[in-house]
Design a protein around this nucleic acid. Structure first.
Lengths: 194, 194
DNA sequence: ATCTCATATATGATTAGTCATATATTAACA
DNA sequence: TGTTAATATATGACTAATCATATATGAGAT
């Protein structure tokens, strides 16, 4: 009857990568390669990123906890695939995690730290750094809008699609806030009023 | 003439905690305890957080790289302090880091991941999670406004203070964006239109 | 006299994340 | 025939971060 593990997560942490993967496997069965290419390089790439090595190791851990199972699918035109599916125990764990509130993370943004400490730099240098950030943020917003146009704009969206749309709305608004602030900051510093 | 280390950072990473500490030590000399209590528990606590163990170990590494030096200050009413100061090599490294643009980090926010995967949860449960996030974000915004009122509102601000104010503006606006979105999201889900 | 608190530093153990590389299969191409 | 590319998994080595705990000093309270 071996309960393989304590009631919830592995260590003391939110164990979020494991739960992101559980969520993705609840949507549909996937391989490690699928997760890397379709997911972390695509759909939720704006919410979480993960190294390939970490994905495969997390899959091993999830399997050893009994939260997912694996079957090898023989392919004749390509290397075989290890297809992972979520188990009932995994669904229970995911459902519990989804309902648990976690403390706000402190978001580590190099640019903000740099600006915070850049009092001894000349204005032009600061402006150049802000302009590079602006360019990167513009590109990111464009990526978000491309995702929106591609898959989330149909009027007969499912509940799941509506939730994805909500999440994307925040990511877009967050980028827009950043862009507005960058433009104001660049103007302020350019006008020598700092 | 031993150059103790390669031209820039330790490994291949931005090495940001080390640079945050360099920045704080450029402001003024500090001990590990100062960094933990005055800084990461206070001033830039909204930009970076650091564990005490990591602070002391990073100080050791910075010293072994020659970017900071340490002198022991004997105290008679308390345990002795190890006071760290930035070196010229440290200032050069910091100046270089401050001018280097880094790729946008992917911000790992548990709540967004949870919402993304919560299609199978009932609306009330989702709303409850969003309400808890709303409360936490309101408190964080209040903290930001308290910092603003305390130290950043005087009209004769230094260049450094003006830059800190700029950074705080973004942090505040980011929270306001989150709050607006949360209120909209809660209303949308409450109205059953999802 | 002991207990607790604030100050102050250090370290062992573990998890999380990154980087580089190894290995294997088949298709497509030159 | 050999090379490259896409698919697919695995692992060694390392850095970064976290958690728990140990150690020590002196002040103030009980």
């Amino acid at each position: 009857m071996g309960r393989a593990c304590p009631p919830c997560s592995f260590g003391k942490q939110p164990m979020s990568l494991a739960h992101v993967i559980l969520g993705l496997l609840q949507q549909q069965e996937r391989t490690g390669y699928d997760l890397k290419t379709e997911c972390f390089d695509d759909c939720i790439s704006h919410l979480w990123k993960a190294d390939q090595a970490q994905i495969y190791r997390t899959l091993d851990k999830l399997e050893s906890h009994g939260w997912i199972t694996c079957t090898v699918e023989i392919q004749h035109d390509r290397p075989n695939r290890k297809v992972y599916r979520i188990t009932e125990a995994g669904e229970a764990e995911l459902t519990h995690w989804l309902q648990t509130h976690y403390p706000l993370p402190v978001l580590r943004e190099p640019l903000l730290v740099q600006l915070y400490f850049s009092a001894q730099l000349p204005n032009e240098v600061i402006v150049y750094l802000l302009e590079q950030e602006l360019e990167a943020r513009q590109e990111k917003l464009a990526q978000c809008e491309a995702i929106e146009a591609l898959s989330l704009s149909n009027p007969t969206a499912s509940r799941e699609q509506k939730l994805h749309r909500l999440v994307l709305d925040l990511v877009k608004q967050r980028e827009q806030t950043y862009l507005d602030w960058l433009e104001k900051a660049i103007a302020t510093i350019r006008s020598q009023s700092i």
